[in-house]
Design a protein around this nucleic acid. Sequence first.
DNA 1: TATTGTTATACTCTATAACTATA
DNA 2: TATAGTTATAGAGTATAACAATA
Lengths: 163, 163
Amino acid sequence: MTASAAQTSSRKRAGNGAARIDADEIGLDALVGHAGYAVRRFQIWIFQDFIRTLGEVDIRPTQYSVLTVIGANPGLSQMAVANRLGIERARLVHLLDSLEQRRLVKRIKSKTDRRAHALHLTAQGETALAKFKRLAAEHERNVEAKIGRENRQRLLQILADFT
Amino acid sequence: MTASAAQTSSRKRAGNGAARIDADEIGLDALVGHAGYAVRRFQIWIFQDFIRTLGEVDIRPTQYSVLTVIGANPGLSQMAVANRLGIERARLVHLLDSLEQRRLVKRIKSKTDRRAHALHLTAQGETALAKFKRLAAEHERNVEAKIGRENRQRLLQILADFT
DNA sequence: TATTGTTATACTCTATAACTATA
DNA sequence: TATAGTTATAGAGTATAACAATA
């Protein structure tokens, strides 16, 4: 509730209304004091821009994060990637199936632990990831244009612990 | 990729490794420069805390937002609520079905537009929402404890346009 | 006994399309 | 013709549980 109880207008409309009302006339009441609400709306905007900007290569945010981490840490196990990115290991299986079918990633049987797979980018995957990173940088410039250069920097600082 | 190419270490591990590695040893590479990655991880943390804090009343973030907006704007149509909160109208149908079964919300046939429903909280819904708001305020204090009072304020300012 | 990868199930959420009854 | 609410479907994403192979 924080300090936003002031907006609790609860304006009555004629009768049982359901009148046509512009979105900006509808008060959010307590929601304006909740960081989670704003963060959620912002996150949806960011993901939509990411998906659109990387639409030509058909890569979604989670796929990009998996490729980036494998590219920077070749040989990781599926468990290590899943834990690092906060993805369920069961879900990573399907993500990797898709990326492996597209010849971007390969699972190599680990010699030290025969239960595990060592994950690597293919040569094709390395090339593709370089392009994905260029498009992701373009997306990031969209974020900067949306909230401002300094605000984006502040945001990254505030949320640095959540990476 | 913003100013974070420095972390592109790509450290090789022995052979095809899949070695056991602590999560904090695994570099995120380009992800550290993406606001969307941090925002997503933060949003997941916030929602988990919200769901846990309001677990005793079994209310999730989206349900809370719907109840709050109806409470502050009685008589709204489903379309108006859906548009204001960025929820698909098809999905709002099921959300309202659930809230109506729990006797928190009622759909009243609009007298001015016989296609539409005017949404209202029940008396029970009003009482319940007051309790939900107290618990949500407790959740918000958890957010403040997690990122700091000033950072939370800055965050709300930076994201004010996304509400 | 515990862990890695896998398969399976269920529920939430998002994105559509199509239908009905109204407007 | 268009809109409000509804129903249905499909694909992500999340959360579990259970299993085989291996540690």
